[in-house]
Simulated scan of single mutants.
Amino acid sequence: MMLELSGLTAGYGSTPVLHGLCMLVTDGKVHALLGRNGAGKTTALRRIMGIVPAQRGSVTFTGQDISHWSTTKIARAGIGYVPEGREVFATLSVRENLTLAGRIGSGEWNVNRVIALFPNLGTRLNALAGALSGGEQQMLAIGRALMTSPRLLMLDEPAEGLSVQMLHILRNALVELKSAGMTTLLVEQNVSFATAISDRVTLMSRGQVVWDGDAEAFSIAGEPRRQFLGA
Rank of each mutant, 00 (worst) to 15 (best):
M2D: 07
L3M: 10
L5F: 15
A10S: 13
G13K: 09
S14M: 07
V17E: 05
L18H: 07
C22H: 15
G28Y: 05
G28W: 04
H31K: 10
A32T: 06
N37I: 02
G38N: 10
A39Q: 04
G40W: 00
G40I: 01
K41V: 02
K41R: 13
K41W: 04
T42C: 06
L45C: 11
L45P: 00
R46D: 05
R47M: 07
I48G: 00
M49W: 08
I51Q: 05
V52T: 14
V52Y: 09
S58H: 12
D65E: 15
D65C: 15
I66G: 00
W69G: 08
S70R: 08
T71M: 08
T72E: 13
A77D: 08
P83F: 01
E84I: 01
R86W: 03
S93N: 09
E96F: 01
E96I: 03
G102E: 06
S106F: 07
G107R: 10
G107Y: 09
E108W: 05
V111P: 00
V111Q: 01
R113Y: 03
V114R: 00
A116P: 09
N120T: 08
N120D: 09
L121V: 02
G122M: 08
R124D: 06
R124F: 11
A127S: 12
L128D: 06
S133K: 15
S133W: 14
G134C: 11
L140C: 06
A141T: 08
G143S: 09
A145L: 11
T148D: 11
P150G: 13
R151Q: 15
L153G: 04
A159G: 03
E160R: 01
G161Y: 01
S163C: 06
Q165I: 09
M166C: 05
L167M: 11
I169V: 13
R171N: 03
N172D: 14
A173S: 15
A173T: 11
L174D: 00
V175D: 12
V175I: 14
E176Q: 14
K178P: 03
L185W: 02
V187W: 02
E188T: 13
Q189H: 13
Q189I: 07
Q189S: 11
Q189V: 07
V191E: 10
D199A: 06
V201D: 00
L203E: 00
S205G: 02
G207F: 06
V209M: 12
V209I: 14
V210W: 14
D212Q: 14
G213Y: 12
A215T: 06
A215S: 13
F218A: 00
I220W: 09
G222Y: 12
R225L: 01
Q227P: 02
F228V: 01
F228S: 00
